[in-house]
């Protein structure tokens, strides 16, 4: 369980790096090899490794909702790092997505 929590945390930072690295693409396609994007991809791979290890020996019903916690972290980071505002729509949409992922986890039992 801790492993999945860690995976979701790392994965959300992966998204943050991808976002910050993507701004450099405006300078031209050659910028695609910048260290932020590389860090983003690396963090993603790391989180996938953790996730796969966790899912091997764990109850999927518990793990699925924990994975989607990554969306919550990402929402926090996007406010913190990119100054994106919280809106009602985001809260509503995100809560429904979390609920839906939990349902699908239950359905896959």
């Amino acid at each position: 369980m801790l492993l999945v929590l860690l995976a979701s945390f790392i994965g959300s930072f992966g998204a943050v790096f991808l976002k910050s690295g993507s701004a450099k693409l405006r300078g031209g396609l050659r910028q695609i090899l910048n260290y932020r994007l590389a860090a983003g991809v690396a963090l993603y791979l790391l989180s996938t490794c953790f996730f796969v290890t966790a899912i091997r020996n764990g109850e999927l019903t518990v793990l699925y909702p924990l994975v989607s916690l990554g969306y919550v972290w990402t929402m926090l980071w996007s406010r913190l790092f990119f100054k994106e505002p919280f809106t009602r729509y985001k809260f509503a949409g995100l809560s429904l997505i979390l609920l839906g992922v939990w349902f699908i986890g239950m359905g896959n039992r």
Partner: peptide, 23 residues
């Protein structure tokens, strides 16, 4: 298929719609 999966699909689609339209 089971009711949980169906509900999950419906709720996620609704959530994404709200997010995409109002976000």
């Amino acid at each position: 298929m089971n009711p949980f999966k169906a509900a999950g699909i419906g709720v996620i689609v609704l959530g994404v719609t709200i997010l995409g339209r109002g976000g």
